Amino acid sequence: MGRMESVWGMDCNEFRPERWLEEENGGGTVVYRPENPFKYPVFHGGARVCLGKEMAYTQMKLVAATIMEVFEVELEVVEKKVPEHVLSLTMRMKDGLKVRVRKR
């Protein structure tokens, strides 16, 4: 569901973090606008939301920040092929995700 055009629109495969930001009251202040948890129910929504959701988000941010601080990670384009996802308990890339990693 994370990349379904019917859910996220025509630009569902583009990396556009600004889609979750909006200007507050026209005053120039930009705020984060979270999506409805029922739109992408990875952690479920409502009364039965996953207890580990906040911990998972915190851990994801920590790992990403640590890697980006020490390494420069660049996507390696292979024959202009769009990476495919494998549907499983934990989402992963089919044939892996080719990247080039260099120490900063």
Rank of each mutant, 00 (worst) to 15 (best):
R3T: 07
R3K: 07
M4L: 01
M4K: 00
E5Y: 01
S6T: 12
V7C: 05
V7S: 09
V7K: 05
W8G: 01
M10Q: 04
M10G: 00
C12I: 01
C12R: 02
N13E: 01
N13G: 00
N13F: 00
N13C: 00
E14W: 04
R16T: 01
R16K: 09
P17E: 06
E18D: 03
L21H: 04
E22N: 14
E22T: 14
E24S: 02
E24C: 06
N25R: 10
G26F: 09
G26H: 10
G27F: 10
G27M: 14
G28I: 03
T29V: 11
T29R: 08
V30M: 14
V31I: 09
V31A: 08
Y32C: 06
Y32D: 04
Y32F: 12
P34S: 08
P34Q: 02
E35W: 07
P37W: 01
P37A: 08
F38R: 08
K39S: 06
Y40L: 12
P41S: 14
P41V: 09
V42S: 10
V42W: 05
F43D: 06
H44D: 14
H44F: 09
G45E: 07
G45Y: 08
G46I: 04
A47N: 02
A47K: 04
A47R: 05
R48S: 09
V49S: 03
V49D: 02
C50G: 02
L51Q: 09
G52C: 14
G52A: 14
E54G: 06
M55L: 15
M55Y: 13
M55W: 13
A56D: 10
A56V: 14
T58R: 12
Q59S: 10
Q59L: 11
K61M: 07
L62A: 05
V63Q: 09
V63E: 10
V63R: 05
A64F: 13
A64L: 15
A65Y: 09
A65D: 11
I67S: 12
I67H: 12
M68D: 05
M68A: 02
E69C: 03
E69Y: 13
V70A: 14
V70C: 14
V70T: 15
V70H: 13
F71Y: 15
F71H: 10
V73M: 13
V73A: 09
V73Q: 11
E74A: 08
L75Q: 06
L75T: 06
L75R: 12
E76V: 13
V78Q: 09
E79C: 03
K80L: 05
V82R: 11
P83I: 07
H85I: 11
H85D: 08
L87S: 12
L87P: 01
S88R: 15
S88M: 14
T90P: 00
T90V: 13
T90H: 02
T90C: 05
T90K: 05
R92L: 04
R92P: 01
R92K: 11
R92G: 08
M93V: 10
K94R: 13
K94H: 12
D95K: 15
G96M: 06
G96T: 11
L97Y: 09
L97N: 07
L97A: 10
L97P: 05
L97G: 07
K98H: 15
V99W: 07
R100Y: 08
